[in-house]
Design a protein around this nucleic acid. Structure first.
Lengths: 195, 195
DNA sequence: CGCAGCCTTGACCGCGCGGTCAAGAATGGT
DNA sequence: ACCATTCTTGACCGCGCGGTCAAGGCTGCG
């Protein structure tokens, strides 16, 4: 749906995406109906289909935007830090804090992972994140700061730890994002056994 | 649905659960209809509702059974191994191999995680797994084999690594489960930095 | 054989879904 | 004032969903 939108139109679209993202996060993709979204916003159904060609497209747009936001935050946090290991640390911390502040988007990621329809789009964004981490890891290996293992494996392991700790301790138990980030960093650097 | 079933009935139920689990894994929970399941098996709809009171109950039964199976496999693999760190290793390896052989059930776990309706049941099973790992970790800490950190954090981190590496390298890239297990174990024990 | 009860059939139901569209209200440029 | 364009309305559509049920086959026991 590439329409020419006025400022008013762009605002409406934002409202729709934000509201829908929260409904999706609460209910899941399939159980959230278009009727529910528009009635929740107090508008007619036509509004929805003026801005989006389908429910699926809306979800994809939310997903893409969230991935883009998250990556932006990561890159801002990393800045021009020269140490690759510290870059990884900064990335983990920034991700945790952002996820804690946008937990509904974390759930959007989860739903996307569960749906064959959205998994490819999700994977594309995740590959970008993996690529970022892989670059830092490779650099760190060259410097002898990290053991020489397949960087892809290390990158996915890091993402797995970050994801799982965020879900469990931030979302389910309401712990502080910064604290959980420290735990994640410690585990990723040293594992179970101390260095 | 607690009916008195004959052997024939029990076989039918197995068929239904196995077939449905595969359909769910391929399509997701919501997009897989009861009509699709029964027509795929070449039986009438009444058969379905003879053995299950709802589509939701079927899914829950599949989920519970899968969790139970996985735990059984883990415990068998661990046997009476005295070393807590080796117990964790054996658990990871057994889980990876089992997941590789039952990838459709891995997807069932994924869908359960995404649906508010099933998340509690999934969490209950996962808490059992976490509890197992926590016990090994605590023991290992006492022996000085593992650094003294919150065992819950370590357990969830281990599960996160296992999950994510399994999904990426076994399911998406078709790598060998045993090899991926070694990677997961190495990361969990030592992290990025070598010991 | 006859009967009890396990099992199967498939037409049917009501509902709520994603999506459409003719009609008209706002908005803003001239 | 007028018009072009953007935006909004909500009744409506066809469909396929989860679930029901009266009817009848099948099986094994006495």
């Amino acid at each position: 749906m590439n329409r020419q939108l006025t400022q008013r139109g762009r605002d409406r679209k934002r409202q729709l995406m934000d509201f829908a993202a929260h409904r999706f996060a609460d209910n899941g993709y399939h159980p959230t109906s278009v009727a529910e979204i528009v009635s929740g916003m107090g508008v007619g159904k036509g509004v929805f289909y003026w801005y989006f060609s389908s429910k699926e497209e809306l979800f994809l747009e939310i997903l893409r935007e969230a991935q883009h936001e998250l990556r932006k935050v990561q890159q801002q946090a990393i800045g021009d830090e020269p140490d690759p290991v510290r870059r990884i640390e900064l990335g983990i911390r920034a991700s945790m804090v952002w996820l804690a502040e946008h937990r509904h988007l974390f759930h959007v990621f989860q739903f996307a992972a569960a749906d064959e329809r959205f998994a490819p789009a999700l994977r594309r964004g995740q590959d970008v994140a993996v690529g970022d981490v892989v670059r830092h890891v490779k650099e760190a290996v060259v410097l002898g700061r990290v053991r020489d293992t397949d960087p892809q494996v290390l990158a996915h392991a890091i993402l797995g730890v970050t994801n799982n700790l965020a879900r469990t301790f931030i979302f389910e138990r309401g712990e502080d994002a910064a604290d959980v980030a420290e735990d994640a960093i410690a585990f990723c650097l040293h594992g179970l056994v101390d260095a």
